[in-house]
Each structure stands twice: as C-alpha cells, then as structure tokens.
C-alpha cells in the first residue's frame, strides 16, 4: 500500500509535467516502446506462477528451474533498462538534470527498476536457500509473499508503461 502511494506520487508528477519541458530532448524524439523489456517482465510473472505450482506439487527441480528462469527474465529486464538508459544518456544527452522530462522519467523508471532489483535479491535469497536445502514447508508462505511482490512490481510496470510510453509519447 505504501509502495503504491509512493509510485502514485511519481506517476502524478510525470503526468503533471508531460509536455511541459522547456528544452529538448522531448519524449517523442528519444523514447522507443520497450517491447523487449515488457516481454521479459510480464513473462516472468507467468514463470513465477509456474514455479510456485511446481513447489506445491513438491517438484523441487522444477521449482528451481522456473524460479531461475524468473530471475533471468528479471535480470534481462534490468539489462534492457540499462542499455536504454545508456543510449539516452550518451546518445541523446538526456539526464536527470536536463529537463522536466528527464527528471520525471528517470525518477519514475528508476524507482521501478530499484524495486525490480529488490525483487531479484529476494528471489535470489530464496533460490540459494532452496538449493542449500533450507526451505521447509512452513516457508511456503514467504515464497508466496515474494511472488506476490513480484506480481506487484509487474503491475506497476504496466502503469509505468502506460504513463511513460503511451500517454507520454502522444
């Protein structure tokens, strides 16, 4: 709930400042729709469900596999974002301090990316714990919580994409 409120404020700031930047670059000129990144992230939501399913059935191997795939997809998303930012910074010259678009874009997408990063760390802890055999049945609730968190991060991405790449590029 707290996180949602936090994101809400950044989303509001972004919406408020759409089209209000006084100097280039403008979003239309530099942003591309993040097909790849979105694909990675949204599909990771599916794989985490599969992983959970396997765990409930008691298939530890399957769980490790799908859990690992989820992590890989999350990491791929982060790498995609990193390259996008690299391109924006060094090719288009858009930084946090360039204009309003830069400030709101990096803070919103950055906030989201930091949540993905936290999610990856959590997923990693579970994976390591499970591989070393420290996951017992009573921990399933924690795993469920983490996958919920992952879905939440996904949901936020859907909002971010809508705001930044769809509304913001009109």
């Amino acid at each position: 709930m707290t996180e949602s409120a936090l994101f809400t404020i950044f989303v509001v700031a972004y919406l408020f400042y759409i089209g209000k930047s006084l100097n280039p670059p403008y979003p239309r000129e530099v942003l591309e729709f993040p097909w790849l990144g979105s694909f990675f992230l949204f599909s990771s939501s599916a794989t985490v469900v599969v992983a959970e399913h396997r765990l409930k059935k008691g298939e530890r191997g399957g769980f490790h596999l799908w859990w690992g795939i989820t992590m890989a997809l999350g990491a791929a998303f982060l790498i995609y974002t990193a390259t996008e930012w690299y391109h924006l910074i060094y090719h288009d010259g858009l930084t946090l301090s360039t204009n309003l678009f830069g400030s709101t874009f990096y803070s919103l997408v950055g906030l989201h990316a930091s949540h993905v990063l936290v999610g990856l760390v959590l997923l990693g802890i579970i994976l390591v714990a499970s591989l070393t055999g420290n996951i017992k049945d009573r921990h399933h609730e924690h795993i469920e919580m983490i996958s919920w968190y992952w879905h939440f991060v996904d949901g936020i991405w859907a909002v971010v994409v809508t705001v930044v790449y769809i509304i913001g590029m009109q």
């Binding site: 409120a5 936090l6 400030s103």
Partner: peptide, 30 residues
Amino acid sequence: VMFLPPLSAAQIMLVLERFFGAKFFEAQAG
C-alpha cells in the same frame, strides 16, 4: 501507511533536485 509516502516521494524529488540537479520544482525549467 497511505499518506506518509506522498511526503517521502516529494522529499525524494527534493533530494534528487538538490543533489543531482533534477528539475521537479524549478521554475526556470518549467
């Protein structure tokens, strides 16, 4: 839980602005 985060968010913006030159509330940048 619902209404402290807006303050935190605004303060994060303020910190970004003061330390990294972001432009949330600067009149000259719009």
